[in-house]
Design a binder for these strands. Structure first.
Lengths: 320, 320
DNA sequence: CTGAAAGCGCTAACAA
DNA sequence: TTGTTAGCGCTTTCAG
C-alpha cells in the first residue's frame, strides 16, 4: 500500500506539500499541486483514515445506541440521524443493545477509547451515574429529558404528550381509559405513569392496575392486548397505545373479531407512522426524523450542550 | 489524556511491558503486571483505539450497506449481522444509501481508506465493475448471488424460490398469477422475472404485463395494490408478494373491502416476518437473521472467499 | 511558498 | 522476562 511518502518522492516534493494538496490548503504553487495530483494517480494512493484519526485525534464517527434495529420507531429515528450524518460527512457506528447494560457499556468504552467522537443514546437501561462518568470523554446526547446539565438532549415531554392524549379521550366522552406500553421501567413509561395518575386524580377516576398493559412492541402484539381485553369483566373503553405498530395490530385484531373501533374500543396511537395514516388511527405525532437530525447535530458539537424539547401533535383520525 | 508512556513511567517499566499487560501477552512477572495495572488505575488510562488501529492496520469495524434502516427486511438482516459482530468484538458502521450510487461509493471509499476492515452489501445499485474495482482493498460480501469468484456471498436463489411459489399456487389450482415487487431493476427482481417467464412458458399461460406490480415496499403500500387490482377487468387470482409487509397490507385491505382471501385473491408472501405468522399469511421463509450472521463471518475472513446458498422454505398458512 | 522534523499513541521485532 | 527502538501514515509547527 502506497503512502504519502511515496507520493512525495515521486512528485519531488515534501510530504508536507502532499498533505497540503490533499487537504486543499492554500499556499501551494500550481505546478507542485499538479505534480502531486499526478503522483497520487500514478501510485494509486489513498489516504489512510486511521493515521489521520490518530494525528487529529478525531474519527468522524458517531456511535448510535439503540435497543432494536428492526422496529419502525428506531428505524425512523435512525434514518434522521443517518441523513444528518451523511450531510456532515460523518459515519455512524451502530450499537444494538437489546436493552442489555453490558452492550450499552461497550458504547461508552468506544467513546472513552476515542474510537468515536460522540455518542447518541436513543434509549437506554444504564443509570444516569454511568452516563455522567463518561461525559468527560466526549459529547453524549440523549433522546430523553436530561437530568443533569452535562449532556445534550432532544426529547419529548412524555408527561405532557400523554396528558394531552388522555384529555382528548376524556373530552370525547371516554372515562375508563387504559394504556399500553413496552417497558414499564423505561424512562418514558415512568413519565406516562405520572401523567396517568395525575389525570385520574384530577378527574376523580379510580385507578385500576389492570388498565395498564405492559410489554407490547410490535404489530403482532396487538392481538395479545385484545385477548387480554376480552377476558376483562370491565375493559377500558379507550386505550392509549405508545406505538402505532401495536395500535395497528389492535385495530386489525378488533376488525377480525368484529369489534367496532372506536365504538367498542377507542384508540390513540403514538408516532404517526405511515401505518397509522393508512389505517386511519388517531395518533400523537412524533417528528422522529427531525429528532434524529437534531440529535446528530448535538453529538458533533463539543463546545456547548443544549436541550431541545420536541413538540408532539395530535393527529385526529377515525379511532376516537 | 494520559498515554501508555505515562503509565510506563509511573509503573517504572517500559511501554512494551505495559502493552504486554494490556494485551494479556505472556512473559510478564506478576509484580510488574500489578505495578502496571496499578498505574493504569491511578492515571485513569484508556487505550487509544486509533493508535492501535494504525499500528495494527486493522479497525475491527465492518461497514454495512443497506438502502433503508426502517424496513423489517433489512432490520432483521441487520440484527443478524449485529449479533454476530457483537460476538466477535467487531462494531458496525452503518451506511444507509437510499439506493443512491454515490452513497454506496462512500462505503467503498471507507474500505479503500482502511476505515473499515470489510464491507457487507445487503442490497445495491452499483455495478459489478465497481465492486470488482474495490475487492483489492478488503473483503466485500454480498447478500446476493455473486457473478465473479472474487467476493463472498450469502444469498437466496430467487429464481428457484419464486418458481417454487409459483408452483405451489399452480398446484393449488391458480392459473392467473401476478406478482408484486419493490424494484423492477433490482437484482432479485430480475431473477424472479426470469422464473416467471419460464414458468408461464412451461405451463403455457399467456403473459400479461399488468400482472406485475412494481414499487411496493411497505404495509401501507398494500392498499395501492388492491386498488390497482380492483380496476382491472381480469385481475389475477393469486399474487406472489415479495415482502410480507406488503402482503399483510394487501390482506388487511381485502378484509376491509370485504374481499375474501384466498377465495377472491390468494397471497404468498416472502420473509416469514412475525406479521405473516400473526395474520396467517402463507409465505416463503427466508432465514434473514442467519443470513446476517453468515454475512458477517464472511466479512471478517480475509483469506478465502466463499459462497453460501440459503434455502427458502414454504410456510403454508391460510392465504392460499 | 516549501520542507524538516516533531509528534499522535501503540505494537512488535530484536537484543539483552 | 524486559527494554530499546523503529515503525504505522499523517498533520502541523517552525524556520526559511
Amino acid at each position: 500500500m502506497t503512502n504519502i511518502k511515496d507520493v512525495a518522492k515521486l512528485a519531488n516534493v515534501s510530504v508536507t506539500t502532499v498533505s497540503r494538496v490533499l487537504n486543499k490548503h492554500p499556499y501551494v504553487s500550481e505546478e507542485k499541486r499538479e505534480a502531486v495530483l499526478d503522483a497520487v494517480k500514478k501510485t494509486n494512493y489513498h489516504i489512510n483514515r486511521n493515521a489521520v484519526n490518530l494525528s487529529k485525534g478525531k474519527t468522524f464517527l458517531i456511535g448510535v445506541v439503540l435497543p432494536y434495529s428492526d422496529h419502525p420507531y428506531f428505524g425512523t429515528l435512525l434514518k434522521g440521524i443517518a441523513n444528518a450524518a451523511l450531510e456532515h460527512n460523518y459515519k455512524l457506528v451502530l450499537i444494538q443493545t437489546n436493552y442489555q447494560k453490558d452492550k450499552e457499556k461497550e458504547a461508552f468504552i468506544m467513546l472513552e477509547q476515542k474510537q468515536i467522537d460522540g455518542l447518541i443514546i436513543c434509549s437506554r437501561v444504564s443509570e444516569w451515574e454511568v452516563i455522567e462518568e463518561y461525559v468527560i470523554y466526549g459529547p453524549i446526547v440523549l433522546a430523553e429529558k436530561n437530568i443533569t446539565e452535562q449532556v445534550s438532549s432532544t426529547y419529548i415531554d412524555h408527561y405532557q404528550a400523554f396528558y394531552q392524549a388522555l384529555n382528548h379521550l376524556y373530552t370525547n366522552g371516554y372515562q375508563s381509559i387504559g394504556y399500553c406500553i413496552n417497558r414499564k421501567n423505561g424512562v418514558s413509561s415512568q413519565q406516562r405513569e405520572r401523567a396517568y395518575h395525575d389525570f385520574l386524580k384530577e378527574k376523580q377516576i379510580p385507578f385500576d392496575q389492570n388498565y395498564i398493559f405492559d410489554g407490547y412492541l410490535n404489530f403482532e402484539d396487538g392481538e395479545r392486548v385484545v385477548q387480554q381485553l376480552k377476558q376483562m369483566k370491565k375493559p377500558p373503553a379507550a386505550l392509549i397505545v405508545t406505538s402505532d405498530q401495536v395500535a395497528a395490530g389492535i385495530v386489525t385484531c378488533c376488525h377480525n373479531l368484529g369489534l367496532q373501533v372506536p365504538k367498542d374500543l377507542a384508540i390513540i396511537g403514538f408516532d404517526n407512522q405511515p401505518i397509522a395514516k393508512y389505517m386511519g388511527i388517531t395518533t400523537m405525532e412524533i417528528p422522529l426524523s427531525e429528532m434524529g437530525e437534531n440529535l446528530f447535530l448535538q453529538a458533533i458539537t463539543r463546545e456547548k450542550v443544549s436541550q431541545k424539547r420536541v413538540n408532539v401533535q395530535l393527529i385526529e383520525r377515525q379511532t376516537v
